[in-house]
Structure formats: structure tokens, C-alpha cells
Simulated scan of single mutants.
Amino acid sequence: MNIEQARFNMIEQQIRPWEVLDPQVLDLLFVVKREDFVPAVYRDLAFADMEIPLGEGQVMLAPRIEARLLQELSVRKSDKVLEIGTGSGYMAALLAARAEHVVTIELRPEIAAIARDNLQRAGVGNVTVECADGIRGWTQRAPFDVIVLSGAVPQIPDGILKQLRVGGRLAAVVGAAPVMEAQLITCVAEGVFNTVNLFETVIPVLDGADAKPGFSL
């Protein structure tokens, strides 16, 4: 496989048609090597328009979903970022390339260890991988300028919203299959949030979220 041609095709045929047009985001997709975060057995599928299995029932999201969320979050170099659902570490690496620091929370120890290794090999030094249940966020380093949930939730937990700084942005896919909506939520004042629906999609439920009905957290 011609890796660079496959990367170019992913960007031009999958990601641009999904209204990802920010040149900084598109350039980043060339710089952060997606194939380095894909399990070796699936390396030939690194640029395919699909979710890639990571083991233990977890997946990497399709490239177009990750790229679109990254674009909508408008991450800045001064931003403190929280990601919930580390997976392979690829989304954390993308966020880290634009942010000051990223804390990413992974529920499963084996997956967290793989993500740490992937990030270290990729030379990403401004990401902290924490092995914990992230459905309540991460109060130790709150508030955050950016929060992203790398998995679907029935609704956004209140505890996570409270960790968003005024002016901060949160991206998540909300709802239940077959109807889910990617949303961008902005904290416009203390305890006041503005929600914009971005696009309809269906992605796997955030690890552990389906075991916590109500989300009154």
C-alpha cells in the first residue's frame, strides 16, 4: 500500500466532503500519522472510512468523524483539553498538536497502556493518559477550555458540563441509535450553555455510559 497516497485519498475523498475545510486541520491530518495508532493487524485499513477494532469491544472512530469534531472545536494553543474515551490515542494526538495540554481518560487499563505507547512512539509529550471512569469528567484539572467525548452518550452528564470554562467548547455525539446527533456545546456564561446540532451520525456508545442511566451525575 502506498501510505501517502492512501492518506491523501482519505483527506480528499472522505474528509473534505464532510465539510472539513479548515486548512490547519487538513494539514494536521498529514502530520499526525494515523497508521501509527492502528493495531498492526489492521494497518492496511488505517485510512478506510470505517471504525477500526482496538480490542475489548473498543474502536477507533472513522476518520471523517474525528476530523469534523476537531474542526468544530477550534482548539487554540492556550487551551486545556479533556478527552473522555482515549482509544488508540489518535484523537488525543490531534488535539495535542493544537492545544497546550490534553488529559485523556480511558476506562480500560489495557487500552490505556496501548494509547500511552502509541503517543510516546509518536513523540507526543503534552498528553496525560489517565486510567479511570471518565463519565464524571476529571475534576483534578478542571475547568477545561475544550472537552470531547469520543463515544456516544444518551445525554451530556451535568458533571462534565460544570467542568467547562466560560467560553469553552464541548463536542459529543448525543442520543441513541438509530438517531444520534453530533453537538457543539459552548459555555456562554457561568451555568449557561448554547448547543448547536452539527450532523446526524451513529457511533458506538462511550465505554461505561450505557451502564449509567439518567446521567444525573
Rank of each mutant, 00 (worst) to 15 (best):
D133E: 04
D145M: 08
P39H: 03
L217K: 05
F30D: 11
A171W: 04
D117T: 11
I84K: 07
A182F: 03
I11R: 05
Q5H: 09
R169L: 15
N118P: 06
Q163D: 12
T86Y: 03
Q14D: 08
I203W: 06
G175Y: 10
Y42T: 01
I111Y: 03
E66P: 00
L95Y: 04
V192A: 13
E130H: 08
Q13Y: 05
S150F: 00
R121T: 02
F37Q: 01
V124K: 02
G123D: 06
A6Q: 15
R16D: 03
N2Q: 12
K77V: 07
N194S: 11
V179Q: 15
A182R: 01
L95G: 02
L164E: 06
D49P: 05
Q183L: 07
V32T: 06
L170R: 07
I52C: 05
S78I: 09
T139W: 11
A48M: 06
R68G: 04
I52A: 04
M1V: 11
D207T: 13
L45F: 10
A172R: 05
D158T: 14
K162G: 03
V129M: 01
A171H: 06
G167F: 14
L95E: 01
Q71R: 10
I147S: 05
A67S: 15
G125Y: 02
L198F: 08
N126W: 07
V179Y: 14
N197I: 10
E56I: 06
I65Y: 05
M180Y: 13
P39S: 09
P23S: 09
E100I: 00
A211C: 05
V153S: 02
L70I: 10
F193S: 06
P204S: 12
P23K: 12
P157G: 09
M10N: 04
I203V: 15
M1P: 11
N118E: 00
D117M: 03
